[in-house]
Every structure is written in structure tokens, then in C-alpha cells.
């Protein structure tokens, strides 16, 4: 199957009732037991092999981004969280995003709309570090990497978490 066909499928993938049951049981997490998928099977009334094949399929389709543990950066000592925003030349945006997204200290990297003239930044990269200085050093690395394709950038540090719900989708 070629890549285009795969992408098209994932856009059009329709979740059926059994998929939705699995999602509803697992969206807050998997049970920490010896056989977590058997437990999901029990809770959904589906066969364990069906749970596994459906979850694999949803992973292939991109409905499940990934499965595993999500560490809390803050608790691990990454107390500084900087949202770096970049004004990248439009025609270089994909190339730049791919370069920045591949860096191991960047946890999220997206293209977002500009609000000209006051907000020209179209590329967002979340940078975590133990201190603000460490984040600044990492942002400098991004700036070096983007070089002339970067027209302007800023780092917005978070000063307070105002709300954080358990559900992560």
C-alpha cells in the first residue's frame, strides 16, 4: 500500500461501537495488572484477541498516537517549561518543523496560524529544562539550527499551571 492511500484511510477511519467501548475504558489509562488487555476485554465484553487487534489497528490508523508511560517533566526535575515560538519563512515551515521536532529536548512541535502584525510566530516548539538557563541554551540550539530561515523568535515561560485535567488525548 502506498503512503497516500494509508493517509487517506486514516482520515476516513470510522470508529464503530466496539472501538468506542475500548476507547471509553482505556482513555484514562490501562489497568496495571499482569494481563491488562484481558481486563479491558472483560470490561468491554469483547474477546481479548479482538481488543488487541482493534488497538493495533487504531495504532496503525493513528487514532492511538502511542501507548506507554507519560512522565511528569516537572517531577523529574525539568522545572522550566518554555514555549518557544518562531517566525519561519512560509516556504521553509515544513522543513524547519521536521528539523526542530527531531530534537530530543523538544516535546511538541506544531505549525500554528499567525496573527499579523502582532503575532508573526508560526512554529511552536515546547522545550523542557532543569532551569530557565538550560531552556535558553536549548532555544539557542534551535536558533542555530534554523539560522536564516528564522526571522524572529521568543520564549514564553510558564509561571503557573492554572488547570490540568487527567485526561490526555
Amino acid at each position: 500500500m502506498n503512503i497516500l492511500a494509508t493517509q487517506q484511510n486514516s482520515e476516513n477511519y470510522i470508529l464503530d461501537e466496539s472501538d468506542r467501548k475500548i476507547i471509553s475504558v482505556t482513555q484514562t489509562g490501562l489497568p496495571l495488572t499482569l494481563h491488562p488487555y484481558n481486563d479491558v476485554a472483560e470490561q468491554t465484553g469483547l474477546d481479548v484477541n479482538e481488543v488487541i487487534s482493534r488497538m493495533k489497528n487504531m495504532t496503525d490508523q493513528g487514532i492511538i498516537r502511542r501507548s506507554g508511560v507519560v512522565p511528569n517533566h516537572y517531577k523529574l526535575g525539568f522545572k522550566s517549561n518554555g514555549m518557544s515560538v518562531w517566525h519561519v519563512q512560509e516556504e521553509k515551515i515544513t522543513q524547519s518543523g521536521e528539523k526542530v521536532g527531531a530534537l530530543d529536548f523538544v516535546s511538541h512541535c506544531y505549525q500554528r496560524p499567525q496573527f499579523l502584525p502582532e503575532w508573526p510566530y508560526n512554529l511552536f516548539a515546547m522545550v523542557h529544562g532543569k532551569t530557565h538557563d538550560e531552556v535558553h541554551e536549548k532555544v539557542k540550539k534551535i536558533a542555530d539550527l534554523l539560522a536564516g530561515d528564522n526571522l524572529a523568535h521568543q520564549v514564553l515561560f510558564s509561571t503557573r499551571i492554572l488547570k490540568k485535567t487527567g485526561l490526555r488525548i
Binding site: L32, I63, I64, R66, S67, V70, K75, G166, R168, I169
Partner: peptide, 30 residues
């Protein structure tokens, strides 16, 4: 295995791990 499970449980209760399991793609789920 039992050590991995109990360590994940402990880290989850301490907040070191904020989540264990699949992460769903909101837009693709509609």
C-alpha cells in the same frame, strides 16, 4: 514483570508518571 508493574504503580501514585496507557488522537476520533 511484577517489579515493573509495582514500580509503575508507585511512580504513578507519586505523580512521576502522569499516565500509563494509550493516548488517543482527538481530531482523528472526530
Amino acid at each position: 514483570a511484577d517489579e515493573i508493574i509495582s514500580r509503575i504503580k508507585k511512580m504513578k501514585s507519586e505523580g512521576v508518571i502522569s499516565r500509563f496507557g494509550p493516548m488517543y488522537h482527538a481530531e482523528k476520533m472526530g
